[in-house]
Design a protein around this nucleic acid. Structure first.
Length: 426
RNA sequence: GUGGGUGUAGCUCAGUUGGUUAGAGCGUCGGACUGUGGCUCCGAAGGUCGCGGGUUCGAGUCCCGUUACCCACCCCA
């Protein structure tokens, strides 16, 4: 049998899982302060949730989805991102009645069938927020500020990141611009790559993303959506930027910033980190005012962001951020010989029941080896149980730093250990 | 889907122009006076050299194929 995790997946081993849980706690604490509540949606959805939401023509939908038929021939898809599911759930459960608002956050694994490389896995982990029912530009600035603050809280210096913002327009101004851009691409068809020419039909805005030098040169002359925004979109964008200025959030306008999901309208943004190579977008998002309508629901504005765990962790490493390992045991209970095995076992359990992190040996190790183990677990105290002590109904408590030892009555063990630990923590 | 790189003990890696029983560091386990840790010293366990062919008297070392991983393109978080 193949004892290797599938291509593009990795086991989150303790050293990494600890960082994930740390980031999760950071997010939970921070997001709660901004009024967000947790939501857990299924890891798979009806395929239409993504094809309609993200868009048939996008790369994610057209070539990266894990789609399969279940035993009743329903087409299901492992979620490639979180927003579509949250909006679907909000509609299904009417979380945003007319005039109301909802702030939700999620965390979990996402799936995209891509060629793996640094910072890009087929199963990867994201944390994200969705702010539904709010159309005012102030919420745009708030959401962007929250994303910025998250990376700061994760320990990534703002000097190592840059925030890019842009506006994608809306249904009033984007269609006309889209046609204008398609016409521009057609007019320069000979100078653009095949991919860009294909984009003229499907998604002309993506041509701005092309890294081909010739395409870039041509596209530098292309009309910008920023200059074609309708009055409402222009005003909204201006207010978002003003809000960021008010908050002292530093950003760069990037008229070529185009997100690869069709549902975005108006505000889009992305945070890039230094030192990650090609996959440097550690977080991004935008507004999606038409998405719930796309699912047949009422017109409901919304926006959100998603941040990638693996990439955030790479950015943390690049910045030298470490998440401290918590002591695995406060007290180690050592066994001198097998005659005291049951005493050791029950003492260890009693300590744990008293709320103290305690550990003991289950591998018949020598006493010396048990001490090494205690040391490795960063135990502050070691309780030594031997025939001598046992005969007197006592144990020896050794302070691992001062090497002081004291005989303690077994009945008195918990309060004594408790007192010693409290003294240490003071 | 397209390129490039790499696969040797649990981990990180050496392995000289192909030559006899494949090494180191870390880790693990044991020991260094009787029931005691972090340093030091000694010892032990642990490897189908990714896999399959080929060349050769002889291949971890050369050639071909294959597979896995990594990096980049693409795309995105």
């Amino acid at each position: 049998m193949e004892v290797r995790a599938p291509k593009g997946t990795v086991d989150m081993l303790p050293d990494v899982a600890r960082v994930w849980e740390h980031l999760l706690r950071v997010a939970q604490e921070l997001f709660a302060r901004y009024g967000y509540e947790p939501i857990y949606t299924p890891i798979f959805e009806h395929t239409e949730v993504f094809t309609r939401g993200i868009g048939e023509a996008t790369d994610i939908v057209s070539k990266e989805m894990y789609t399969f038929l279940d035993r009743a021939d329903r087409s299901l898809t492992l979620r490639p991102e979180g927003t579509a599911s949250v909006v679907r759930a909000a509609l299904e459960h009417n979380l945003v009645p007319k005039g109301a608002a909802a702030k939700l956050y999620y965390a979990g694994a996402m799936f995209r069938y891509e060629r793996p490389q640094k910072g890009r896995m087929r199963q990867f982990w994201q944390i994200g927020v969705e702010a539904l029912g709010m159309a005012e530009p102030s919420i745009d600035a708030e959401v962007i500020a929250l994303l910025v603050r998250f990376f700061e809280a994760a320990g990534i210096p703002s000097a190592n990141t840059r925030l890019l913002v842009n506006s994608m327009g809306d249904e009033h101004c984007r269609p006309a611009y889209r046609e204008e851009l398609a016409a521009f691409i057609s007019a320069h068809a000979a100078d653009l790559c095949d991919e860009c020419n294909r984009r003229a039909d499907t998604n002309p805005l993506r041509a701005f993303d092309c890294k081909n030098p010739t395409c870039r040169t041509v596209m530098a002359e292309a009309p910008l959506l920023r200059d074609r925004l309708c009055e409402e979109c222009g005003t909204h964008y201006g207010s978002v930027k003003h809000g960021l200025d008010e908050l002292g959030i530093v950003y760069e306008e990037d008229p070529s910033l185009v997100r690869g999901l069709d549902y975005y309208t108006r505000t889009v943004f992305e945070i890039q980190a230094e030192g990650l190579g090609a996959q440097n977008a550690i977080g991004g998002g935008g507004r999606y005012d038409r998405l719930m309508e796309e699912y047949g629901g009422p017109s409901t504005p919304g926006l959100g962001f998603a941040l990638g765990f693996e990439r955030t962790m790479l950015a943390m490493q690049a910045a030298g951020v470490t998440v401290p390992e918590l002591p695995r045991a406060e007290v180690y209970v050592a066994r001198v010989d097998d005659s005291v095995a049951t005493t050791v076992f029950s003492a260890c359990q009693a300590l744990r029941d008293a709320g103290i992190a305690a550990e003991m040996d289950h591998q018949a190790r020598s006493l010396k080896s048990q001490f090494k183990q205690a040391d490795r677990l960063s135990a502050l105290l070691t309780v030594i149980v031997g025939p001598e002590e046992a005969a007197a109904g006592e144990v020896t408590v050794r302070d691992m730093r001062t090497r002081e030892e004291a005989r303690v009555a077994l009945d008195d063990l918990i309060p004594r250990v408790d007192a010693l630990l409290r003294r240490d923590h003071r």
